[in-house]
Design a protein around this nucleic acid. Structure first.
Lengths: 157, 157
DNA sequence: ATGCGTATGTTATAACATAACAGAAAGCGC
DNA sequence: GCGCTTTCTGTTATGTTATAACATACGCAT
C-alpha cells in the first residue's frame, strides 16, 4: 500500500497523504482558521485516493466514525476545504478531490479518466479562453477546466 | 424586443433565434434524425435568452403549453439537443443553453456572468491543458471549459 | 458572566436526474 | 393492408445532490 498508481503516476501514497495534511495544517495556522477533527478527517478521506468522491460518499465514511451523519456536515467540511484550497470540486462529477498542490496558488485543470475514475490535477494554461475574454471585456473570477477521457493505464494498447 | 444585450453584445435576437432553428432543422434532415415538436419547442425556449436554463425551468415552460409535465420529457429533449450539438450543458450551473454556432464543429468554452446570468459561448483554445495531457498520455475525449465572472454590463464602471 | 464568533447538530426540503415500463406513431418490407 | 421494427412519448417511482433554517455547544475576550 506504500506505492500506488495514482495521479497517473506511481508514487508513495503514504508520503503524499501525510505531507498534504501537514501542509494544510500549517496553512490553517498561518491563516488563523481551524482544522477541526471533521475537517481533518474529511481531508484525509479525500486524500486516501486520487479519485473524486461524492459528498455522500464522504459522509458515509464520516458516519461510521461517528463524525456526523447529516448532509450539511459533509458539505460544510468540504466547503471549508475548497475555500481554503485544500480540495477542489469537480463539476463534471459533482464530486470532490483533494488538492494535489495545496501550497501553490493555482488555477487547476483536471483530467478525469472515465474508465477508472482517477483524476489528475494539472495547471490550467492562462490562455484557455484565448482572447475571447479580454476581447469581450469579460472579467474572469474563476475557471472550471476539466477534461474527460482515458488515462494511460486505461487505453487499449 | 428585436435587439437585446446578449452574448455580451447587442444583436437582433429574433434573427438569431430563427436562423438557429432553421440551421438545426437542416442538420436534422441531413442526419436523418427527427426534430419533433417537443424538441423544437425546447430549442426555441433555450434560444429565447442567452442565459442557461435548468431542466425544470424548461419543463415548466413545456408544461404550460401541454407538451409534457414530467422530468424525463425535458431531460430527453435536452439530451437530444445536446447530442446533436444544438445545445450545451453548463456543468457549473447544472443547466442548459442553446448553442451559439450550431453548424460549426466545436469545443466550446463559456463565460458565465454571476450577476445577470448571461452566458456567452466562445471557442476553447486547444492548448487549454497545455502540454499536461499529451505529456502524461491522457487521451482527451471531451472538455468542460467554463469561466465565471462579470460581463461587461455588470462591471462597476 | 455575558456576549460574540465560530463550529456543529438536526430537521426538513429543494433541486437535479434517471431507471424502468407502457403505449403511440412512423417507416418499411411484403 | 398487415405485421414488424424503431423511435418517440407518457408516466410512475425513485435516486442523487445540495441547502435553508434553526438549535446547541464551545472558546475566548471583555
Amino acid at each position: 500500500m506504500s506505492s500506488d498508481p495514482v495521479g497517473f503516476e506511481k508514487h508513495n501514497h503514504a508520503d503524499c497523504v501525510s505531507s498534504a495534511v501537514a501542509s494544510a495544517q500549517e496553512i490553517c495556522a498561518e491563516r488563523g482558521v481551524q482544522m477541526t477533527p471533521v475537517r481533518l478527517r474529511t481531508l484525509q478521506i479525500l486524500l486516501e485516493n486520487h479519485a473524486a468522491m461524492g459528498a455522500y460518499d464522504v459522509l458515509a465514511r464520516l458516519d461510521v466514525e461517528g463524525l456526523g451523519s447529516k448532509p450539511p456536515v459533509a458539505y460544510r467540511a468540504l466547503g471549508f476545504l475548497v475555500d481554503q484550497g485544500f480540495a477542489h470540486r469537480i463539476e463534471r462529477l459533482n464530486a470532490f478531490i483533494a488538492c494535489a498542490h495545496p501550497a501553490a496558488t493555482h488555477n487547476p485543470a483536471f483530467m478525469i479518466c472515465r474508465s477508472c475514475g482517477t483524476v489528475a490535477e494539472a495547471q490550467a494554461q492562462s490562455g484557455a479562453f484565448g482572447a475571447s475574454a479580454t476581447q469581450s471585456g469579460f472579467q474572469i473570477e474563476q475557471t472550471v477546466i476539466e477534461a474527460e477521457g482515458l488515462c494511460p493505464s486505461c487505453q487499449p494498447s
